[in-house]
């Protein structure tokens, strides 16, 4: 099997919520453990996942999120989710579930991706649009554009937008 061409997975990470950062990093790190070649292209809010100052502070917003559980049997009305402090509460709640279930943190999963040689690409165009500098992002990634991603993705067995 070692002579076979490795499987390849290309992921676009376009969202920066705490719950939205998990899928690309879990699949990316696991695919590398399955000997896949993996690239993740971070664009728009997905850039927060690889932003040195933000990656430990990703949040989950309860507003307009009907899947958000209430407190015990009491479902919290959606508009309450828009009140100050509710995003903080929802984020705290999700982090505590994750911790209790023994799920890795975002920084841990990012580290696993880096150790697994997952290629991390930051989108140059969205960095320019959003005023993000190279030094704001972690050192291990490269900056590239749509063509950089597509050159890798053209031979991918799995491609996903998340």
């Amino acid at each position: 099997m070692s002579e076979e061409k490795p499987k390849r997975m290309a992921i676009i990470a376009g969202k920066g919520g705490l719950d939205e950062a998990y899928p690309p990093l879990i699949l990316g790190s696991t695919a590398s453990a399955l000997d896949f070649e993996v690239a993740i292209f971070f664009t728009f809010y997905g850039l927060d996942i690889v932003n040195k100052k933000k990656l430990k502070k990703l949040k989950v917003a309860p507003l307009a999120n009907p899947a958000m559980p209430g407190i015990g049997p009491i479902q919290i009305p959606n508009f309450i989710g828009g009140l100050p402090g509710m995003t903080f509460m929802a984020t705290k709640m999700m982090k505590s579930w994750m911790n209790n279930a023994g799920v890795a943190t975002i920084p841990d999963l990012l580290e696993a991706c880096i150790l697994g040689d997952v290629q991390l690409i930051a989108c140059q165009m969205t960095m320019d649009v959003m005023g993000i500098k190279r030094e704001d992002l972690i050192d291990e990634l490269e900056v590239g554009g749509a063509a950089t991603f597509l050159e890798f993705a053209k031979d991918a067995d799995i491609t996903m937008y998340m």
């Binding site: 790190s29 696991t30 023994g102 799920v103 890795a104 999963l109 696993a112």
Partner: peptide
């Protein structure tokens, strides 16, 4: 023990 997906796989691989 105590760890959830994907950590058992990542640690096993390592």
């Amino acid at each position: 023990s105590g760890l959830s997906c994907p950590l058992p796989i990542l640690k096993s691989k390592k």
